[in-house]
């Protein structure tokens, strides 16, 4: 079943240096990477970004196939972006057909846009592939702590996020099960027009919603039974701690960011 192979927000256990970095470091590095991606303007900048990403993937030891499978869902967006950039960028025309106007500038900007989107997606996927959802939300909560001063419900938000992440695989599994059960009764999810397909989803969605609500109820009771009362005064089993490697990576990340910015400034 294809559903099982969805890798959204999925964690691949491992013991590489990327896996062992503090989640806050990895979140900050991802943010820096994205900033640098948008700073990069020309070939040299993009080249550096690609090398950085490639070495990060190599270090993470996550299989290439797995990483690139993450790009599949956004393939359409990538294609449309490339198409728009190719034919609607003003500049030196090399080929013209009707309203389609292929330009040299268009080719470059299409290449850069595709690279930018792909690398953006890949680097965020790398973050979720190498960081368990729990650590990820711990890291986010910790990074957003200062916002508590202005009454942002940081703990509640991160709790909601970790619960949501926790239940993605469960819900996918559940969807798979219900789909199989309805298929066993002759339901057909693949053929027919749009209306038929939408109607075919009812036997899937109704049980799925009911079970999601049931799960939410059970979870709430289970949390209350263990005296959960929000984030006030809550301590952690696993304390986050910056190590030397974190400092090194952060400095390195910052250096790349600045370098790309400076290069872009000089038009490289």
């Amino acid at each position: 079943m294809a559903l099982k192979d969805i890798t959204l927000g999925q964690y691949f256990p491992g013991n590489s240096i990327l896996h062992r970095l503090d989640p806050r470091t990895k979140i900050l590095l991802t943010v820096m990477y994205i900033v640098a991606l948008f700073l990069a303007k020309q070939l040299v900048g993009y080249g550096i970004m690609m090398v950085v990403l490639a070495s990060a993937i190599a270090v993470s030891k996550v299989k290439l196939k797995t990483i690139f499978r993450g790009l599949k869902p956004i393939l359409i967006i990538i294609i449309i972006t490339a198409f728009l950039n190719l034919f609607w960028t003003p500049g030196q025309t090399i080929w013209k057909w009707g309203f389609l106007n292929l330009t040299v500038e268009g080719i470059w900007s299409a290449v850069f846009m595709v690279l930018r989107i792909s690398m953006l997606i890949l680097c965020t996927f790398l973050l979720t592939y190498t960081t368990s959802p729990i650590l990820l939300t711990d890291g986010l909560e910790n990074l957003m702590n200062p916002l508590k001063k202005i009454h942002v419900p940081v703990h509640e938000l991160s709790m909601m996020m970790s619960i949501a992440l926790r239940f993605i695989p469960t819900l996918i599994e559940e969807t798979d099960k219900i789909m199989s059960a309805q298929k066993a009764r002759g339901a057909d999810f693949d053929t027919g027009g749009l209306m038929d397909k939408a109607k075919a989803l009812i036997p899937l969605l109704v049980p799925l919603f009911i079970s999601a609500f049931r799960r939410a109820d059970e979870l709430a009771i289970a949390m209350e039974c263990r005296c959960y009362h929000g984030g006030e005064g809550r301590t952690r089993l696993r304390q986050l701690k910056y190590r030397k490697a974190d400092a090194a990576f952060l400095v390195g990340g910052l250096a790349v960011c600045v370098a790309v910015g400076v290069l872009a400034h000089f038009g490289l």
Binding site: K177, Q182, P203, V206, S211
Partner: peptide, 11 residues
């Protein structure tokens, strides 16, 4: 084929 806990597929 009747799955495990088939009551969860009622809709």
């Amino acid at each position: 084929l009747v799955f495990q806990y088939p009551e969860y597929q009622l809709f």
